[in-house]
């Protein structure tokens, strides 16, 4: 007898609908992807293709000369390229680490320990999701100068610790994924809260802290805002690359190369963690 391969029947789905969805996703997907494809193509274009008229979209004879140009420009600058890279790496890694540890600990206390005022504290975080930090730029500068953090990398690292989306996502995830019974069992065994947190809770919420790492890293990596930093040798990589970008028409190729280099890191990180991020966000809902 012929073996019939079982496939779950898809309910309420018409072929015409599937085709329309395919067409729709293709058109909009192309629109979303075009600027990035353009940047990649431009980054590999030799000089004569950059200035051909009428403008051509795709690259015909790919070359690495734009990347060489980029590194030459960056080498010629007063502050070496490696310094900008080191600044950005330090800010991204330190900021992300601090954010993950601090907000996970706090989220644990907010959802699993009993104390007065925790609802109020959490509501403050939810409230802060509702306004854009752009509105607090001026007072933030005043706070930084009071702390004496102007022209130090701490002005970029420490505020990242207190990002509200991270705490929110972590708390929602713990609420669903960490059963109280496990914690009770550990407490009866005599484990301290710190031990429980690091040995029991953190391994259970791995998707959530991966998500926090990615979100925090993405933000810090792309940071070009230097309103607290005036010393050239402390500025982040994105700032330096933006300088290349604003260097005028002769640098279009190098600028595209810079843009490609900047976008590779967050995209690669996302590719590897996508499923964990989606898992975390599935518990992220807000009650009405």
């Amino acid at each position: 007898m012929k073996k019939v391969k079982y496939r779950p029947k898809r309910l309420n789905r018409s072929l015409a609908g599937d085709i329309w969805i395919g067409i729709f996703l293709f058109i909009f997907g192309a629109f979303m992807a075009l600027p990035m494809i353009y940047a990649i193509c431009t980054a590999f274009k030799p000089a004569d293709e950059l200035w051909v008229y009428p403008p051509r979209f795709f690259v015909e004879n790919p070359t690495l000369s734009n990347f060489k140009d980029l590194f030459r420009i960056l080498d010629d600058s007063v502050v070496p390229f490696s310094r900008y890279l080191a600044n950005t790496l330090f800010v991204s890694i330190a900021g992300t680490l601090g954010h993950v540890v601090l907000s996970s600990m706090c989220a644990y206390a907010l959802c699993k320990l009993k104390f007065k005022g925790k609802k109020f504290l959490f509501n403050l975080v939810v409230l802060s999701l509702m306004f854009n930090t752009a509105v607090t730029a001026i007072p933030n500068f005043l706070v930084m100068s009071k702390l004496g953090w102007i022209d130090t990398l701490w002005s970029l690292v420490v505020p990242a610790f207190g990002s509200s989306l991270g705490l929110y996502l972590m708390k929602q995830f713990m609420e669903v994924m960490v059963p109280d019974s496990v914690l009770e069992a550990a407490r009866i065994d005599g484990a301290s809260e710190f031990r429980i947190f690091f040995r029991v809770v953190m391994p259970m919420v791995r998707p959530a802290w991966l998500t926090l790492i990615i979100f925090s890293f993405q933000g810090l990596w792309n940071l070009a805002n230097t309103s607290y930093i005036y010393r050239e040798d402390l500025k982040p990589l994105n700032y330096a690359l933006n300088q290349v970008l604003s260097g005028g028409v002769t640098r279009v190729g190098a600028a595209a190369a810079a843009a490609v280099l900047m976008m590779i890191v967050p995209i690669v990180l996302f590719v590897f963690t996508q499923s964990k991020i989606v898992e975390t966000l599935s518990t992220s809902g807000m009650k009405d």
Binding site: L102, S103, T133, P139
Partner: peptide, 24 residues
């Protein structure tokens, strides 16, 4: 113990998110 868990995050959060709104 609770303070040790909650305070580090909220000190940063208050200083760079809530305080600036009040100052503003």
């Amino acid at each position: 113990t609770i303070l040790a868990f909650v305070a580090p995050y909220y000190i940063v959060f208050f200083t760079f998110t809530i305080l600036p709104v009040i100052i503003s």
